[in-house]
């Protein structure tokens, strides 16, 4: 009898264990669910090596000019300061549309990125142009507010004309393993966005490991992100090539599983044309040319544009100009 009970409970136990398979294939099969399945592991040393190799690509002549113009057109020109005023925002919006009037043929930036309170001002300022309005929301940058506040924050921005919402995830919840909470929050904000595209900021500087970055990317994509974004710009390190590479591979696996494209936005810390070109090479060699437009790739940056402009002028005239020849709105 005892033996029977023992074998019965053994059978029962193994049934329970069988019910929760941690199939390593899952991240690559169509029924992958980051809340139930492990994400693929990421080897930091390998990522660093891959990124280093990408940085040895030599971008010259025509491809450099083409790349630099692409970079300008991918910038979310950003001001996110406590001291932002309508005056500052209006001037930045003008810069976004007129990067260097002395040099015709240059694109505008993709968007301007502001706080919700400045969305209305910015919307009016870029009227008639292709420049989109991106607004941070969800109690940016910490995200330490209740969901209803975050939803109100988001709706306010959308109602004032935001085309894109840059939300932050709850990093504290993520780090304590409450993935479901993080997922639900993103899904709720996505719903509040309506037609606005949702960028989900992982704040990778607080997630620390690449395994965490991958997990958070998978959760964000699964919860409805249109874009995933590295950082708020308020925490160091902000965007790095390693982190961006890890996120690009999450986007790639999602695309391979579902055929659905997700956008990528590294933000913070990318201030030179050379670094920006390395990011483009990385996108090209991981996701392919289809992602090389501002519909699918953005740079969150405030000072990148002028360095790119300086390089374009250098390419065309052969000489560097002083920074005083480039406006600093």
């Amino acid at each position: 009898m005892a033996a029977f009970l023992l074998s019965f409970s053994y059978l029962f136990l193994s049934l329970i264990l069988l019910k929760k398979p941690m199939n390593k294939l899952k991240p690559f099969s169509s029924d992958f669910d980051p809340l139930r399945h492990e994400s693929p592991s990421v080897d930091k040393v390998g990522v660093e090596e891959r990124v280093a190799r990408i940085q040895t690509r030599s971008i010259k002549n025509e491809s450099k000019i083409q790349g630099l113009k692409l970079v300008l057109n991918m910038i979310d020109l950003t001001t996110l300061e406590g001291k932002d005023t309508p005056g500052k925002v209006k001037q930045m919006c003008y810069k976004a549309m007129h990067l260097l009037d002395a040099h015709p043929g240059l694109p505008a930036t993709a968007a301007v990125c502001v706080y919700p309170s400045m969305v209305g001002i910015a919307k009016a300022a870029v009227k008639g142009s292709d420049v989109k309005i991106a607004s941070v929301s969800t109690a940016f940058p910490s995200g330490q507010a209740p969901l209803n506040v975050k939803l109100d924050d988001t709706r306010f921005a959308v109602e004032n004309g935001a085309d894109e919402i840059d939300m932050v995830i709850s990093r504290g919840k993520f780090l304590s393993g409450e993935y479901q909470f993080v997922f639900d929050e993103i899904a709720a904000i996505k719903e509040a966005c309506g037609k606005a595209r949702l960028k989900v900021i992982l704040e990778t500087g607080e997630l620390v490991t690449l395994d965490n970055v991958r997990k958070a990317s998978d959760i964000a994509i699964h919860a409805g992100a249109d874009f995933i974004k590295t950082s708020t710009g308020k925490i160091q390190p902000a965007a790095t090539m390693q982190v961006t590479y890890t996120m690009l591979m999450a986007i790639k696996d999602h695309y391979d599983r579902t055929g659905v494209m997700i956008g990528m936005k590294p933000a913070g810390g990318i201030s030179t044309a050379k670094a920006a070109l390395h990011y483009l090479v990385m996108v090209k060699e991981t996701l392919g040319d289809a992602w090389l437009s501002n519909e699918w790739f953005r740079f969150g940056a405030s000072s990148l544009a002028n360095d790119v402009l300086m390089q374009i002028i250098k390419m065309e005239t052969g000489v560097y100009q002083s920074s005083d020849y480039f406006s600093i709105d």
């Binding site: 030599s58 971008i59 010259k60 025509e62 491809s63 083409q66 483009l280 040319d289 090389l292 699918w296």
Partner: peptide
């Protein structure tokens, strides 16, 4: 849709 293509010039 392929929005653009970007190739490396010979280097």
């Amino acid at each position: 849709k392929k929005i653009s293509s970007w190739d490396f010039s010979p280097s």
